[in-house]
């Protein structure tokens, strides 16, 4: 269960990215879309293209930060080297960070991949949950929860709903 509630301030972190740079959420002045995800999970893969599209469409206002916290010992596809490959193959237009110690997933109380936390530009949590209501088929999406949350935050309104249920694989914790 998430350890951060709507209205709470962002929990800062600094993590290494596939670009070889350490990224610190504190330094981002835009709306921050923090997504716990990974390489191997089919739910994460199903939504990847939509995340890329959102970053592209709202690049003026948002910064997506994708984090993988999975244990790469159990799931070799989620190793840092594989993350670098995936990011290149899919041409991720956002930082893809490795939470090897799983400290940040634990801090946030994230449980699924993908699981989204959206903070406004001042760093207050405004939305937590899933991306939309159809992981299988983008053309059949009826509720674009994340997109609508972003639009609301840009317009200085509170997202409604502000919480949805994250749907996906479980984060793969170390034994």
């Amino acid at each position: 269960m998430a350890k951060i509630n709507i209205g709470d301030p962002q929990l800062n972190f600094e993590l290494p990215g596939v670009d070889g740079i350490k990224h610190n959420i504190k330094n981002i002045q835009k709306i921050k879309v923090v997504i716990f995800s990974c390489n191997h999970c089919p739910y994460a893969q199903a939504w990847e293209d939509r995340i890329i599209k959102l970053q592209s469409e709202f690049s003026k206002h948002i910064q997506v930060i994708m984090i993988s916290s999975n244990d790469a010992k159990q799931f070799p596809d989620d190793s840092f080297q594989e993350m670098v490959k995936r990011s290149k193959e899919k041409q991720f237009n956002f930082p893809y960070l490795y939470d090897e110690s799983q400290e940040i997933a634990t801090l946030y109380g994230a449980e699924r991949t993908p699981e989204v936390f959206v903070f406004d530009a001042s760093g207050i949590l405004k939305y937590h949950g899933t991306i939309d209501d159809n992981y299988e088929n983008e053309s059949e999406v009826e509720k674009s929860f994340l997109k609508e949350a972003i639009e609301n935050i840009i317009n200085e309104k509170n997202p409604n709903p502000s919480i949805t249920e994250p749907i996906g694989c479980t984060i793969k914790w170390k034994n």
Partner: peptide, 8 residues
Amino acid sequence: YFALNCRA
């Protein structure tokens, strides 16, 4: 590989 996981 074999593990408790969602299948793609």
